[in-house]
Each structure stands twice: as structure tokens, then as C-alpha cells.
Amino acid sequence: MMPAMRATLAAGFAEPVLDAQACFRAALEAMARPGRVQRVAAPPEAPPPLGGAAAALLLTLADADTPVWLDAGPEAEAWARFHAGCPIAAAPGEAAFLLAAGPMPPLASLAAGSEEEPHRSATLILQVAALAEGEGWRLSGPGIEREHRLRVEGLPPGFAADWAANQARFPQGVDLFLCAGDRLAALPRTTHLAAG
């Protein structure tokens, strides 16, 4: 069933401590200012179809405590398991982190936390075709002074409705990282999207 795997694994971060710190700061800044696009300076060498930013986020945040679900094939799974040491979740609903390179799993099917512990919710790392600031959606909510604008290419058609339902569950809900190449933006569950 497996396609031919490369004999050697792709490398992780060149400087695991400092590269993870830099990636985390990009992720924190992205989550604190939804819709602002950040760049991951030194992404790991990841097996396709994983992009630089998505792979960097996985290595920065996932470890043995966080079941990870990914749809990027056995080579990416082996890479994640080796470098992050994370267990691979069988179903999207069981994962703490999800990395979707293909079709987006429905947000409602992911762990959303409980009323008392809304932080026990999934974070979805979604690879998209492109991110552009200053056009597209109008974003509002915490972290945004007046309005941020973000255009995301490559999202499924029902995304806006899915996101509105996710936002309506606050404080429960799923948080989203959007990654394109070595760039990333975040949508925390508090962010309201309006069509641009």
C-alpha cells in the first residue's frame, strides 16, 4: 500500500532550539493579531506535500503529549513521528493538532474543548494556496484595532459558514493556522469574518 519511501528521512530544524523559538514567536504574533501574515524564517526540510510553515508549526508545537492527525501520506507521518515524537491520531476528532494538506476536515468534527476547559480543543494547521494581506475578508475581534483584511486562496466553498458556526461556539471552538509556503496567518476562534 505504501508508495516507495525515501531511504532517509528529511531533516528537522537546523537549529532546533532557536528555530522553534522563532517559529513560535511568528505563531504567537499571528494568533495575537489575526489576519496579519508572518514568515517562518528557517523552516525545516519537510517531505512534500508539507510546506515550510506548516511543518515548522508541527515541530514547534507537537510532541509526545499531543496526538497529531495528518493527511500528507506515510512519509510525512514518519517524519513527524521521528522529529516531533508525536503519536499519530486515527481520527480527526482525537487529535490535538491536525495538519491538512488536502481537503479540510469539517471544523465541527474536531475537538472543541468543554465549557469548563475550552483550551482542550484542536488546532488545525491548514495548507492553502496563497495568503494576501490588505484584501479579501474583513476581520474583526480581539487582536485587531479596527479591521484586518486577508485573502486566502484554496479554501473549501463552505468555509465561511463553517467558521461562523465555530465562532458561535465560543468559548469552545477550534483555532486555525493558515499556511502557504513559509508564510502563516492565524484565525483564533474569536475572529469574525465578513466577506470583503
Binding site: P16, L28, A62, D63, D175
Partner: peptide
């Protein structure tokens, strides 16, 4: 010492908590 004193596992755990804390403003993680 590791950079910043804490080991990487601890930093990762705190970083995950920080991201959820930012996503749910005011909620104690």
C-alpha cells in the same frame, strides 16, 4: 543550560498553553 533555562519539552507545553490563552482571552489555562 538550555537557551532560556527551561528544557524544550517544558517550553513546548507552555507555548501550547500560551496560544490557547491568546485564543480565549481571559480564560485561565
Amino acid at each position: 543550560y538550555n537557551f532560556g533555562y527551561l528544557d524544550e519539552d517544558t517550553k513546548r507545553m507552555i507555548r501550547r498553553a500560551l496560544l490557547k490563552a491568546v485564543a480565549i482571552p481571559g480564560h485561565q489555562v
